[in-house]
Design a protein around this nucleic acid. Structure first.
Length: 191
DNA sequence: AATGACTGCAACCGCGGGGCA
DNA sequence: CTGCCCCGCGGTTGCAGTCAT
């Protein structure tokens, strides 16, 4: 079959008409098999492009606009824990997409964190802001008891490494707002 | 008003993983 | 086991809008 074919595949920004076509097609036929969707809908777009457009823009319940302080806080803390696992982080932010979270991090938070590092007080230097995730994906999985239903046996080593079960809040009180509803055990089931 | 620099976001690219024949 | 196809992820690029001069 024809691969996403270089020659006649349209690129660049999506037009409102294209959005409408894709949206109505998916509403009628459902998601799945994006290569097929791009062919059958009549859009001259690659399957990947259709998928991206739907997931990041057209899907229902997409939240647009600025991040709330709570969302910022969550992103920062999740990033510290997981690193650049944008899809996982976005999974904890209803209506936000991995692309949006990634962009937000790269444009806003990454900058913020690096500028903080520059004038960081000693106490902050002791807990570097972003460089390394506290847990690798593997560690997250293990701590969730993957491979052994040891439930309730929560591995708390990440807490020790962060230094506190409420990471960062004491170091950056101007930016971070502790959300008492959030517990890390809350997102483990998603992994 | 013109224009060059900067910023933020949408979209693309390449790669790896999973499912299936 | 192998190869193919599709999907999803993370990194990167490109462009439109905004700001500064």
């Amino acid at each position: 079959m024809e691969k996403e074919g270089k020659s006649h595949v349209k690129r660049g920004l999506w037009k409102p008409e294209e959005d409408m076509i894709l949206k109505s097609y998916i509403e009628t036929h459902g998601e799945g098999n994006w290569a097929d969707i791009s062919r059958r809908s009549g859009l001259k777009r690659g399957g990947k492009s259709c998928r991206l457009r739907w997931k990041n823009y057209l899907r229902p319940n997409i939240k647009r606009g600025g991040m709330s302080p709570q969302e910022q806080d969550l992103i920062i803390r999740m990033h510290k824990l997981l690193g650049n696992r944008w899809s996982l982080i976005a999974g904890r932010l209803p209506g936000r997409t991995d692309n949006e979270v990634k962009n937000y991090w790269n444009t806003h938070l990454n900058k913020k964190s690096s500028s903080r590092k520059q004038n960081a007080p000693e106490s902050v230097e002791a807990t570097p802001f972003i460089d390394k995730p506290v847990m690798s994906t593997e560690e997250v999985r293990r701590s969730h008891g993957e491979g052994g239903e040891g439930e309730e046996e929560v591995d708390t080593t990440w807490m020790n490494r962060i230094g506190s079960p409420l990471p960062l809040i004491t170091h950056y009180p101007d930016t971070l707002v502790f959300d008492p509803c959030f517990a890390f055990t809350d997102f483990f089931p998603l992994l």
